[in-house]
């Protein structure tokens, strides 16, 4: 028995557009592949590929100084790269929305992903970022919608952790085949 799979990436892209997000910064992750492609294909969205997730914090701060809403896409390992810069989000009360695909959870095949994956929520919360989690594909869009409202109405950083169950990577071969 299988329900129709939820196209969460398409739903999230629609929600970003509806919310007036005009800029998306990303360090790619397999789990974000489709959403990244949708953003690139959208002529109304500036899509910025970054060398490290840390750059994204500056990008969203600069965008907001210029009156533009943005969102960041990254993998949970990238959260480790942004810790110090999150201090700017907290101190300046910049709105920031980060969609984070999880690695290092149940089903992970790469043990090197586990420590940062397990620490992701705690690290974000330690730096003042509010964390929401989506455990199923159907939960992703509502969580992103809520995150956008919270961040841009309350001027704070909000992260949506997208469970590895949603992404579904269980082996190296699956990652290669994406």
């Amino acid at each position: 028995m299988s329900a129709t799979p939820v196209d969460w990436a398409l739903a999230v892209h629609n929600t970003l557009t509806q919310a007036g997000v005009k800029m998306v910064g990303y360090v790619p992750d397999g789990g974000h592949k489709r959403l990244i492609e949708l953003c690139h294909a959208d002529a109304n969205m500036k899509t910025v590929v970054m060398t490290t997730e840390e750059e994204g914090v500056g990008l969203v701060a600069g965008a907001w100084l210029g009156g533009e809403k943005s969102a960041l896409l990254m993998q949970s390992s990238g959260v480790g790269n942004i810790i110090n810069c999150l201090g700017m989000i907290a101190e300046c009360r910049f709105p920031m929305v980060a969609l984070i695909t999880m690695r290092g959870e149940l089903g992970e095949f790469n043990p090197w992903q586990v420590p940062m994956g397990q620490a992701t929520r705690e690290v974000l919360e330690s730096m003042g970022v509010i964390v929401e989690r989506a455990n199923t594909a159907a939960e992703v869009e509502p969580a992103v919608n809520a995150a956008l409202r919270l961040a841009y109405n309350s001027y704070c950083g909000v992260a949506v952790l997208i469970s590895q169950r949603v992404i579904g990577i269980k082996s190296f071969q699956e990652q290669v085949n994406q």
Binding site: V48, E54, G58, A61, A63, L65, G66, E68, C85, G87
Partner: peptide, 21 residues
């Protein structure tokens, strides 16, 4: 906008601003 922190991020703040404006 003078950065008092976020060292290494000045160019990115400028880039976000330039793209927005």
């Amino acid at each position: 906008f003078p950065l008092w922190g976020a060292m290494g991020n000045a160019v990115m703040v400028g880039l976000g601003l330039a793209l927005a404006q």
